[in-house]
Computed example of a mutant assay.
Amino acid sequence: MNFANNINRINLSCYALYVFYALLTLTILGYGVYFLQNFGFEYIEIGMAIGISALISSIVQPLIGRFADIKHYSWKSILIILSIIMFLASLGLFFAPKFLFIYLFCLMVIVLGCMYPFLNNTVFYYEHHGVKTNYGVSRGFGSLSYMIFAALVGLILVGSNIMIINVFSLVASVSMILIVVFLPYYGYSIDESVKDKSKSFKNNVLFKYPVFTLAFISVSFFMIFHQVFMCYMINIFTNVGGNIADVSFANSLGALLELPAMFLFAHILKKVSLRNLIILASVLYVVRSLVILTAQNPLGIYISLILHMFTFAIIIPASVHLTDEIISEEDKNEGQAFMGSTLTIGIIFANLIGGNILQLYDVNLLLVVLVILTVIGCIFAFATLKFDK
């Protein structure tokens, strides 16, 4: 079937989904602590709420993916349901008493994590149905939007009511509902006659696909590294004489450096194989952690950030492409859900590891742990080479 007439609309819709998802991520996670603090919640309450929500999300993501694969629910149905839940929770924040307020916010954190793998599935679904899409460009629009929204929301917040943050969440969730509703759906991809009738919740992708399992573990360690670095960047900078201004600039620089690799990823894949890209990014993660460890001044940290475009900006689209490549059609929702949960796993362990080390020891030990995390991730990445496609 020829869907050429829909190509531009579908691609623009996919880009828009990542744009509004970036806005949700910014308002919920980027400004979450600031938002809750203004309603009288203590740092320890906020940290526990976000940490537990991230843990629940990391568990729920693959369960939803597995359920969708077994019951043959489409990514479209799941995304609409999740977006509606996000909208209702966000709307409820305008009226909720304080004891319920934190629970609604936690629900938004959980739903945010669960949305991500189904966004990825959206792009690849159309590619498998003859519509030329580009995951790297879609994800790149998300990174670009996050950077722009961060600046705009920061300016708007000056002199505005704190609930303006939640207004952005409402706008983003409504926009995602409308976009998904009007996206075309061409039916489930698996022929009824060849469906695996023995599929069950016990038979998940981690047991069926050894390469995927190794890649999942590898990416999880890299995401822990990423989240530790992002969460405790101020400690890392002050350790070498930097300050909060360095953190602000580094955040903007990191988002900017993601763009070239994300937008050009499809072209890069034509020159370098997917597996080699993952190995290259893994090795450079180790190099990056060593640069951070040996940095003597803020310039050293900035130099390590340059490698962000060859590590995080490569491993994210590469892991999603790898999942799509090696996971069978009937398991794709669950596969992408597991790979998407690595970001949430990173948040959980970053808070556990970073918080405890800084509380009991110092930032120098934390930098050593960053090296250990990347070395373990690199070892598991190389282990995938033992298996053929």
Rank of each mutant, 00 (worst) to 15 (best):
Y285F: 15
T311P: 03
L284H: 06
I301F: 03
V287D: 04
L277K: 13
G346V: 10
A261I: 14
F338N: 04
S289W: 11
I301C: 01
V291A: 05
H308G: 01
T344A: 15
K270S: 13
S319T: 14
G335M: 08
A337T: 07
L264F: 15
D324Y: 02
I303E: 02
F265M: 12
S341H: 10
I347W: 02
I316A: 07
F265A: 12
A318R: 07
H267D: 11
L307M: 01
S341W: 03
E334D: 06
I303G: 02
R288K: 12
E334T: 03
I345S: 02
M339W: 11
L322F: 12
A313I: 04
L305I: 05
A266P: 00
A313Y: 03
S282D: 07
I279Y: 10
P298C: 02
L305W: 01
V283I: 12
L280V: 14
L269S: 14
I278V: 14
M262I: 11
G300T: 09
V287C: 04
S304N: 06
I278M: 15
A266S: 14
H267R: 14
V320R: 04
H321I: 10
H308R: 03
T311G: 03
I268C: 10
I327H: 06
I301S: 01
N276Y: 00
E334S: 08
G335T: 10
M309Y: 02
L277T: 08
K270F: 04
Y285K: 05
R288V: 10
I301Y: 00
F338T: 02
V287F: 03
A313G: 06
I278L: 15
I301G: 01
T294W: 07
D331W: 13
V287Q: 00
L305H: 02
Y302C: 05
I303L: 11
Q296C: 00
E325N: 12
K332C: 10
L274K: 12
L284M: 07
F312I: 07
I316Y: 12
K332W: 10
S328R: 15
I292V: 14
K270V: 11
S273V: 12
K271M: 14
I345Q: 03
L277R: 11
L277M: 15
K332I: 10
Q336W: 05
A261H: 09
V320G: 00
L290F: 04
I303Y: 03
A261P: 14
I347H: 10
T311D: 01
L293H: 06
L343K: 09
L269Y: 05
S341E: 03
L322K: 11
V272A: 00
G300P: 07
L284Y: 05
F338W: 15
P298K: 02
P317N: 02
L343W: 13
Q296G: 15
S319C: 11
P298I: 09
S319V: 04
V286A: 04
